[in-house]
Design a protein around this nucleic acid. Structure first.
Lengths: 186, 186
DNA sequence: TAAATTTATTGAACAGCGTTCATAAAGTCA
DNA sequence: TGACTTTATGAACGCTGTTCAATAAATTTA
């Protein structure tokens, strides 16, 4: 209930509007009660982020099966990723904006979810470049995905300051296209 | 004074610790006075970000002159960018974390600074691929830089979940290397 | 110099935030 | 019914951004 309410607040009122009191009120309880379910707001956000990761994962996996060739798979999931970021802006932002308190670290099960997401990208990369070491494949996947993510982030927050005929999709396209072309060359 | 104090707070106590009261106290004034200088916290941050952009610009420009070949220039400034992000974490984060209130938009002089930063990246790209249209060059520069930025961001906030032998620099290296290789191919 | 006016500064106030905790209500079992 | 456990409350604390009438200081005018 709390997670659904939080998700709704994010969708309707944005990142900044998310607060324990609003979530509590939305589900008909008081703040104190919410703190019996979640240790603190960070933990609530963590679980919300987990749900977001799950959603993203299923969407990317679905897209993966649509294309026969690995290049198309990567272009496809990049596009899906951008779309998700655009349409679920606040929820997506929360994934990255949220930085946990210094000292504490993300639980292992969350780490695992992230790794599984990266596995979706590593698979077609493996198909493009076979016989690469595990760490090399991880490096390439993270370079590509960090890249796609960065373009989405800057584009959505309007920080790339491009002209009008330049769209987010076309920039992501350029990034993936050139990266994969370069990858095939080596 | 206020900007210097804010910068110090960011460096010593991190992003979250930045508040109008702390800045005011640090310069020996009360909150009210600070609001006579800046309309609100957003405006203070805007000016702080402008200073950050200036600093970044001069560092990237300095690095640009160090290398004769455009490939080396781009690798060099990518490295400088990562270093800056790593060592001035909070200030750098503030550049991107900070999202202005809905409706209002960044002033024109700030936009111009961003465009000038991108010009530093567009120059070596122009050398690599001459005879490309203005908008195409803008697209390529933003794809590359969005990418480098994304890798830095995810790496610094520890969200890429790679193994231990994978460093931030090596991932950025992979991204730039492959992108430029692909660019040369087309 | 004295008064008038402008400028600079204050500090209290408001609403909201995350978080805690003694208190109270509701449910369970003997 | 009484004892015990679970569930929920709401007031409180210290923090946040922001505003604004009141005050102090500096400057200008008479």
């Amino acid at each position: 209930m709390a997670l659904a309410a939080a998700s709704a607040i994010l969708a309707q009122q944005g990142l900044e509007a998310l607060s324990t009191r609003k979530v509590a009120k939305a589900i008909g309880y008081t703040v104190g009660t919410l703190y019996l379910v979640f240790k603190n707001l960070d933990e609530l956000i963590l679980h919300l982020n987990a749900a977001t990761l799950k959603e993203l994962e299923s969407m990317l996996k679905a897209e993966s099966t649509k294309h026969p060739r690995p290049h198309e798979v990567l272009h496809g999931i990049a596009r899906v990723y951008c779309d998700y970021a655009k349409h679920q802006r606040a929820r997506w932002s929360l994934l990255f904006t949220h930085q946990l308190a210094p000292g504490s670290q993300v639980p292992a099960w969350f780490d695992l979810m992230v790794r599984e997401l990266f596995a979706i990208i590593e698979a077609p990369l493996q198909a493009i470049k076979a016989n690469t070491s595990h760490s090399e494949r991880a490096r390439v996947a993270r370079a590509l995905w960090g890249g796609v993510h960065g373009v989405c982030e800057l584009a959505l927050s309007d920080k790339l300051k491009w002209g009008e005929q330049v769209t987010t999709e076309s920039v992501v396209e350029v990034l993936v296209e050139n990266f994969l072309a370069g990858l095939g060359q080596h």
